[in-house]
Design a protein around this nucleic acid. Structure first.
Length: 616
RNA sequence: GGGGUGGUAGUUAAGUUGGUUAUAACGCCGGCCUGUCACGCCGGAGGCCGAGGGUUCAAGUCCCUUCCACCCCGCCA
């Protein structure tokens, strides 16, 4: 603590117009964090270092709330204790960086601050070192002050000083570390897989990286380490994991970033049940650590078919009822043309019965109709079950026996509101499934504390892609079909079930995986069903097909979206709040301004030419 | 590619049927203040109303184009 240490300001004052002379850190070391001091520490001499949260200048006395990542401690600059120090403290402003040496003392009677953990004490400054000044920040570093997201992202280093955001990243760190220790103990090996890899068909659009050494050729950034982890199983590693960045060049959402992190794992010689219990043990640990309690294992299970029927989605939110009910058969012969025509065209009719929903206004019904249109529905029919009869634009088309059948099918009570959508199955499920979620929130049916986990199982292996006019994988092309369904692969491919499973938390998919194909012949047949020719399969996946011929063990795995998991655990509604440096919806980093144009010489080296922007 | 919400001072917002000098809060600057903690009091500065075009005697306000942020559909095995 050499008071003769030169001040930075002495050196720079002539060349750098700063608002205040700066000091060197010198030999000082931070002795306590800003959240630690308590009455028991009274009398200690401490050195605090941090940022000025707020300065309250009373003329004769200056208070500074000093903030570091852990918390806030009040520092008092009292001229009777250190006159020079008090004088310099007058120059302090928000976000200046300080080191303060001083003595811990109790605050006077009645002057404690119950809002701060350190609020019973304060540090009387003996010596102040101003380590850096700060421009006036574009927004205040407080959880309550909500700046717009573009300004927060541009000045992310200031945004990250806000305790809430910092805590989110601490939670993320904890999940990652806890995951590692859990898997390490169970004999899993963390293995890194390439980031520069090859583009594969199927799945998302790839990010491409040109190869300078191999001009005209491109690496792709991995959408997931899928094939590498399977190859590691062939290599006999038996238990692999990785917390790894994945890249998908698709449009963004609140829960989708172009680069995101997967907790990825794979095991040999296992079945579905081994995965379930492994993950249930892990989730329990994560939830206990971050939430203080955990849903009890074993978690609920639901088949894909059941989920689609009752929830209209493969990510059921089981925190509330309001289930979908199919009424196609009941209304097939009704006078209501919309229902009849939809059914004649191969569609279905489903209904939601909202208990006590008769009091929803016409405006709210109109809003719902607009809402279901987002998902392709043409409209939505409704019936209010009033005490004096059915109030509905369509009641007159429903014969008494149809009405009676609906009452039984939907367990209708007086006061209920019935909502119908008739269309192709996918549209009906999308529309009503999403409407159900919206109503759940709107009507307050959701317990905000609930953490409902459910395994969704028995997914179909394939689904028909009307645009591409071929089958595509529901999960991915390496997912094992259920063996007893294999014979359907050539005749009724959409009926083949896969050995895939998803884990859904409060209606959000947090993880998914499958038992993989480990026989070359099965893999070839699945590629064939996907319309991937033998030649293309050899070209794109030859290494996998070959590896499967060298003693591939039965294996399977699962991957979790770390960002989404932490988002849910932190109660956030966007994964941007759990990512240190996220991108905007246009996939731009507002802090670095990435992506940027490439230098002509870089392009020349890569043998690339940028064409004029396409005019759509 | 499409639908929606928003863009006004450093920040967050208000701004009437188009009408004098565009408001407020916080922040910022100056002054006063020895117990504040969202300190207080007095004074002050600060604006290309996202950008471009148009209508009009007159545009923050109306019209067109465009950019940016956010939410959603498509897309994301």
């Amino acid at each position: 603590m050499d008071i003769n240490e030169p001040r930075l300001g002495d050196q720079f004052s002539e060349t750098q117009e700063g608002p205040v002379a700066l000091d060197h850190l010198g030999e000082w070391q931070k002795t306590v964090n800003c959240d630690t001091l308590r009455p028991a520490d009274v009398g200690r001499e401490v050195i605090l270092m941090g940022w000025v949260q707020r300065r309250r200048d009373h003329g004769g006395l200056i208070f500074v709330d000093l903030r570091d990542r852990e918390g806030i401690t009040q520092v008092v600059f009292d001229p009777q204790i250190a006159e020079l120090c008090h004088e310099r403290a007058g120059a302090l402003r928000s976000e200046y960086v300080l080191a303060v040496r001083g003595n811990v003392r109790l605050r006077p009677e009645g002057m404690t601050n119950a809002k701060l953990p350190t609020g019973e004490v304060e540090v009387a400054a003996v010596e102040l070192r101003i380590l850096n000044s700060s421009k006036t920040p574009p927004f205040q570093v407080e959880d309550e002050v909500e700046a717009s997201e573009n300004i927060r992202l541009k000045y992310r280093y200031i945004d990250l000083r806000r305790p809430k955001l910092f805590k989110n990243l601490v939670a993320r760190h904890k999940v990652a570390q806890l995951t590692r220790s859990y898997l390490n103990e169970l004999g899993f090996l963390e293995v890194e897989t390439p980031v520069l890899t090859r583009s594969t068909p199927e799945g998302a659009r790839d990010y491409l990286v040109p190869s300078r050494v191999n001009s005209g050729k491109f690496f792709a950034l991995p959408q997931s380490p899928q094939l590498f982890k399977q190859i590691l199983m062939v290599a006999g590693f038996e238990r692999y994991y990785q917390i790894v960045k994945c890249f998908r060049d698709e449009d963004l959402r609140a829960d989708r970033q172009p680069e995101f992190t997967q907790i990825d794992m794979e095991m040999s010689f296992i079945s579905e049940e081994d995965i379930y219990s492994l993950i249930e043990g892990w989730i329990e640990k994560v939830f206990l650590e971050l939430k203080g309690s955990s849903p009890l294992a074993p978690f609920a299970r639901m088949t894909y078919a059941e989920s689609m029927d009752l929830y209209g989605t493969d990510r059921p939110d089981t925190r509330f009822g309001l289930l979908l009910t199919e009424v196609t058969d009941v209304v097939a012969n009704s006078e209501f043309r919309v229902f009849r025509q939809a059914i004649e065209r191969g569609g279905i009719v489903k209904a939601l019965c909202v208990p006590g929903g008769k009091d929803l206004s016409r405006k709210e019904l109109d809003d719902m109709i607009e809402f279901v249109k987002i998902f392709g529905a043409q409209g939505m029919a409704w019936i209010k079950i009033q005490p004096d009869g059915w109030q509905s634009p369509i009641a007159k088309f429903l014969a008494p026996e149809v009405q009676q059948a609906l009452i039984e099918r939907l367990s209708i009570d007086t006061g209920d509101l019935i909502l119908f959508v008739a269309d192709q199955k996918k549209i009906v499920n999308d529309a009503l499934g999403n409407l159900r979620g919206r109503l759940g929130k709107q009507l307050g049916l959701i317990d905000p504390e609930a953490l409902n986990l459910v395994w969704v199982t028995d997914f179909p292996l394939l689904e028909w892609d009307a645009n591409e006019k071929r089958y595509t994988s529901v999960h991915h092309p390496f997912t094992s079909p259920v063996e007893s369904d294999m014979e359907l692969l050539d005749t009724e491919p959409e009926k083949v079930r896969s050995r895939a499973y998803d884990l859904v938390l409060n209606g959000i998919e947090i993880g998914g995986g499958s038992i993989r194909i480990h026989h070359q012949e099965v893999q070839r047949r699945v590629f064939q069903a996907l319309g991937i020719s033998g030649e293309e399969a050899r070209e794109k996946f030859g290494f996998l097909l070959e590896a499967l011929q060298y003693g591939a063990p039965p294996h399977g795995g699962i991957a979790f979206g770390l960002d989404r998991l932490v988002m849910l655990l932190c109660g956030c509604s966007s994964i941007r709040d759990v990512i240190a440096f996220p991108k905007t919806q246009k996939a731009i980093c507002l802090m670095t301004n990435a992506p940027s144009e490439a230098d002509v010489n870089q392009l020349l080296e890569l043998c690339l030419k940028v064409e004029a922007e396409r005019n759509a």
